[in-house]
Design a protein around this nucleic acid. Sequence first.
DNA 1: CCATCTTTGTGCACGCGTTCACAAAGACAT
DNA 2: ATGTCTTTGTGAACGCGTGCACAAAGATGG
Lengths: 255, 255
Amino acid sequence: MATGRTHRPATRSRGIPEATVARLPLYLRALTALSERSVPTVSSEELAAAAGVNSAKLRKDFSYLGSYGTRGVGYDVEYLVYQISRELGLTQDWPVVIVGIGNLGAALANYGGFASRGFRVAALIDADPAMAGKPVAGIPVQHSDDLEKIIQDNGVSIGVIATPAGAAQPVCDRLVAAGVTSILNFAPTVLTVPDGVDVRKVDLSIELQILAFHEQRKAGEEHPDGAAPPAAAREESDESADQGPDGDVPAVMPA
Amino acid sequence: MATGRTHRPATRSRGIPEATVARLPLYLRALTALSERSVPTVSSEELAAAAGVNSAKLRKDFSYLGSYGTRGVGYDVEYLVYQISRELGLTQDWPVVIVGIGNLGAALANYGGFASRGFRVAALIDADPAMAGKPVAGIPVQHSDDLEKIIQDNGVSIGVIATPAGAAQPVCDRLVAAGVTSILNFAPTVLTVPDGVDVRKVDLSIELQILAFHEQRKAGEEHPDGAAPPAAAREESDESADQGPDGDVPAVMPA
DNA sequence: CCATCTTTGTGCACGCGTTCACAAAGACAT
DNA sequence: ATGTCTTTGTGAACGCGTGCACAAAGATGG
Ligand SMILES: NC(=O)c1ccc[n+]([C@@H]2O[C@H](COP(=O)([O-])OP(=O)(O)OC[C@H]3O[C@@H](n4cnc5c(N)ncnc54)[C@H](O)[C@@H]3O)[C@@H](O)[C@H]2O)c1
Ligand SMILES: NC(=O)c1ccc[n+]([C@@H]2O[C@H](COP(=O)([O-])OP(=O)(O)OC[C@H]3O[C@@H](n4cnc5c(N)ncnc54)[C@H](O)[C@@H]3O)[C@@H](O)[C@H]2O)c1
């Protein structure tokens, strides 16, 4: 998972568990695909397969939204698309600003999947004066001096941060002060925000490191054939002779 | 959370819980920053604050790695950097290929934070013949015809998919067949992989939808002053009169 | 060497999330 | 109308993750 929420304790939002909320977009995507193929109804089993989850989980998730679905038949695709969209707040338009129009920010600005779900790129903001006025993805980049005005004029409540790590917290502070209450952060930093502001982060580096961890485990298991004891092959090897097959980085040892 | 794992049930990998593994990179980042400032030791309290987590959680996380840390003092920064790096498999070099060098793929290729943790971009692969040979971030793009050979020649086990959604599954299948066992997927699709292959996904659209959900809740609460009953303001409103303040999408109703 | 003070490591309890398994609901055929 | 068959919705059990709270460990000062 490339994410993690901040603040807002375990206050189940109106009764819909956070884990369920995180899956709703997944269901919505699968349902939209079915809708485009004019499929009228789906069973929980089919839809679960398409979304890559357990069917019991899917049914429980939907049960938090209400009793849509007909026993013996399944769920009405169009109706469910509407209900989930409404629950996620996608029946309204969400203006979004992107701050930091570098490699990543420009890619995000060019991303088509943005607009497809009610999100509209209201403005692109960068601190580089050389970029001001230059169009990216058809939208002229604006200077960060005008950040507050841009937020307020467009009624923006969702901000995307794609600046270097060092600039992320100051930018975040300005966004929040200007009225932004939801932030998607691509910079590799922990953002501190007041209560009531949601932060989600996407960190490529963290994802790769998690993959590397599992990759290392797979390589360390070394079982060409079937059932080898998966764990407990080595217990508390502490240090020494645990390196991969390749070379190793000389390590700094403690006092 | 922008992620979600696939397959591999709840098999706690060698005793380190998945949730802990996901936080190790966070600790590592904070520790690296301390190391650069030549800070010799940190307490769990300080480090937890820097990583944005609870200090008890941090201590429990570290306890899975072993008893590094000195009571009354804290943790030796350099030592901990090494131990976490080793646990995550970052003491070895991980060649990575990126498939789909469009807006996003190019941004990823240009991303400096890639190399900083033992990940090396071994190759860039695209299906567009016009891109073949063209350097992106100093690395010439190779045609996807040679995908299998590239994977094998470089001993690549981690692949990044940044192609359009429709191409993701076929690309994934080829990567896996060629020997890749860890995939980071940016395309908005559920990938199906054999057992033993790890998939993590990053989906911008899902993140925004989750933010929109909470944003809608905040807007719906409408409490200019202090303590209003957070939930149970409306119970089971089913349909009708639940739309946002703005316009609403005409919905298709079921039979 | 002893006392004090800081900070770790963890036992324990609790709550959330997942999954199983099944009764109830309803479609559909006869 | 009645029976059968499919599929939902959910009660209950279980396991994982989180956070509290505290005893043990060890540093530090006298
Ligand atoms: N490129 C990637 O694939 C990638 C992947 C993961 C994370 N990231 C992170 O995303 C961020 C951006 O990456 P990038 O490759 O686009 O970097 P970049 O250097 O290409 O772009 C950063 C942009 O932010 C602008 N900027 C700097 N300070 C600013 C400020 N105070 N206000 C507004 N704009 C400001 C710069 O002018 C520049 O245009 C970095 O934090 C990076 O670590 C990037
Ligand atoms: N741009 C973003 O910010 C962003 C954000 C989130 C998700 N995504 C997703 O990431 C993916 C890439 O986005 P993008 O904006 O870079 O798109 P893009 O169209 O700019 O780039 C896609 C690239 O993939 C290449 N390609 C197509 N089929 C291929 C194949 N079979 N093998 C190898 N290469 C192939 C194309 O030639 C092209 O260069 C999409 O699935 C998109 O939905 C993008």
